[in-house]
Amino acid sequence: MKLMMKIFIVFATVLAVAFYFFYNSNQTSPAAVTTVGGQLEKLAPLPSEVKESSGIEAAAKQGHYITHNDANNKPYLYEIDEKGHLVQTYKLKIPNVDWEDLTSDDKGNLYISDTGNNDNKRKELAVYKVNAENMQQVQPIRFTYEDQPAKTSKKDKLDFDCEALFWHDNYLYLITKDRNKKGIARVYRLPDKPGNYKAQKVGTIKMTDLVTGAAISPDASAVALLSEEKVHLYQNVSSVDKFYEGKPKEIKLSGAGQTEGIMFKDDNTLILTSEGGNLYRYSL
Score class of each variant (00 low, 15 high):
Lys2Gly: 15
Lys6Met: 13
Val10Glu: 05
Thr13Pro: 03
Val17Glu: 06
Phe22Asn: 15
Phe22Arg: 15
Gln27Gly: 09
Gln27Val: 15
Ser29Arg: 14
Ala32Glu: 15
Gly37Cys: 08
Gly37Leu: 09
Leu40Ser: 04
Glu41Thr: 13
Lys42Met: 04
Leu43Phe: 00
Leu43Gly: 00
Ala44Cys: 00
Ser48Val: 15
Glu52Thr: 12
Ser54Lys: 09
Ile56Arg: 00
Ala58Trp: 01
Ala58Tyr: 01
Ala59Glu: 00
Gly63Pro: 08
His64Lys: 10
Tyr65Lys: 02
Thr67Phe: 00
Thr67Lys: 01
His68Gln: 08
Ala71Gly: 04
Ala71Asn: 11
Asn72Gln: 14
Asn72Gly: 14
Asn73Tyr: 13
Lys74His: 09
Tyr76Leu: 03
Tyr76Asp: 07
Leu86Tyr: 02
Leu86Asn: 06
Leu92Asp: 00
Lys93Gln: 14
Lys93Gly: 09
Asn96Leu: 10
Val97Ala: 12
Trp99Asn: 08
Glu100Met: 09
Leu102Trp: 00
Thr103Ala: 06
Asp105Trp: 02
Asp105Thr: 09
Lys107Arg: 15
Gly108Arg: 01
Asn109Met: 10
Leu110Lys: 00
Asp114Pro: 05
Thr115Ala: 05
Thr115Met: 05
Gly116Leu: 10
Gly116Ile: 06
Asp119Arg: 15
Asp119Phe: 15
Arg122Ser: 10
Leu125Cys: 04
Ala126Asn: 09
Val130Tyr: 01
Asn134Leu: 05
Gln136Glu: 14
Pro140Ser: 08
Ile141Arg: 11
Phe143Asp: 12
Phe143Ala: 10
Glu146Ala: 13
Asp147Met: 07
Gln148Cys: 10
Pro149Ser: 11
Pro149Leu: 14
Lys151Glu: 12
Ser153Tyr: 02
Ser153Gln: 06
Lys154Gly: 09
Lys155Arg: 12
Lys155Asp: 09
Lys155Thr: 12
Lys157Asn: 14
Glu163Tyr: 01
Ala164Leu: 09
Phe166Asn: 13
Ile175Asp: 03
Lys181Leu: 09
Gly183Tyr: 10
Ile184Ala: 03
Ala185Ile: 05
Arg189Tyr: 09
Leu190Ala: 08
Ala199Asp: 13
Lys201Ser: 11
Gly203Thr: 13
Ile205Lys: 04
Lys206Ala: 05
Leu210Met: 07
Leu210Asn: 02
Ala215Trp: 03
Pro218Thr: 03
Asp219Ala: 07
Ala220Tyr: 13
Ala222Lys: 14
Val223Asn: 02
Leu226Val: 07
Ser227Phe: 06
Lys230Asp: 04
Gln235Met: 11
Asn236Ala: 11
Asn236Thr: 12
Ser238Tyr: 05
Asp241Leu: 05
Tyr244Pro: 02
Gly246Ser: 15
Gly246Tyr: 07
Gly246Gln: 15
Lys247Cys: 01
Pro248Gly: 13
Pro248Cys: 14
Lys249Pro: 04
Glu250Cys: 04
Lys252Ala: 11
Ser254Ile: 15
Gly257His: 06
Thr259Arg: 01
Lys265Glu: 07
Asp266Ser: 12
Asp267Tyr: 06
Asn268Tyr: 06
Thr269Arg: 05
Leu270Gly: 06
Ile271Phe: 05
Thr273Phe: 10
Glu275Leu: 11
Gly277Ala: 10
Arg281Tyr: 03
Tyr282Gly: 04
